[in-house]
Amino acid sequence: MHFTSRFRGSVAIMVLTVTTLTMILGACDRQAEEPFPSNPITLVVNWPAGGGMDRIGRVIAEYARRRLDVPIAVINVSGAGGASGVRHVADSDPDGYTVGILGASLVASQYINPNANAIDDIDLIALVGPDPAALEVRSDSGINSLAEYVQRAQSNPRSIKNGNDAPGGVSHIAATLLERSANIELTLVPYRGYAPTVAAILSGEIQSSTLPVHQLIEQHKAGEVNILGVMSEERHFMAPDIPTFKEQGIDLVAGDWRAIFLPNGVPDDHRAFLEALFLETLNDPDFQAAAEQLSFFITPMTAADTKRFVEAFDQELYPVLLEAGLVRARHK
């Protein structure tokens, strides 16, 4: 049976090769005790490629990379309304080589989805900036101001159909907050993402929407849609002529925001390094110009401020979600 033994011998050689290879690769992973960072850093984006979160994530990675000797690889881990990507980072090794970017969906997910991470499960290190919601109506609706909108909705409750995300999504929360703060009732019509909502307001299926300014700014310029107000502290740089809600007498600030985070338990020196790195990047004028080109507001905050900001957001959101029947996990 000479062929069997030869076969076996060859298998042995193969196994040996594979084992050696494994050891070499394993050794590469463990270049311990070298200055941080000495390996590539991964930035996890919790929405698919091409979306808003992906675009800002990649610009941040691009400009942060210029301050480092190692590359930053951007990967998209999407699913479960953003919760999958957060979990991916929260469960990764807390060595500082995995960083994530997330948005307001974090706060809503923790109450809606029993399997999503809570704010305490992760370590927020920097706020990138807000992405305020706005209120848009079709031009042919004859509504030209926020006051008219509120009056129309009050005189005929639920007659205005507003397009927004699924419950718990950013534009859905903005619509719910609008109902509360203006004391009106709308019919909330859910769409899967911003693009179908844009299509629906253009086709006339809905009369208004609570999307961010940049989603409908071109249609506003073309006169198909009126943007009635922006739900932010200050006016949006892309539409400086449009007043905020506060200016029009309704105390409403709503919309998305974006922040950079780490898993809990990253060593202090690595964490401090990353916080400084991203803060410097976000304050870099070149970066800010590039982000503005992509229609992003950049208002950097330190880790401590970010945590306070997110906690305040959480406090504000909880009663809204509770009232909407969306708190299914982690009751307060």
Partner: peptide, 29 residues
């Protein structure tokens, strides 16, 4: 656990060899 290259190599090698063996075409070498 052991990475893409080692595990894929083992998987591919074992199965190509096993299937080849099962077909029985050609010498073991």
């Amino acid at each position: 656990f052991i990475g893409f290259i080692p595990s894929s190599s083992v998987f591919a090698f074992v199965w190509i060899a096993a299937l080849g063996f099962k077909i029985g075409e050609g010498a073991p070498r």
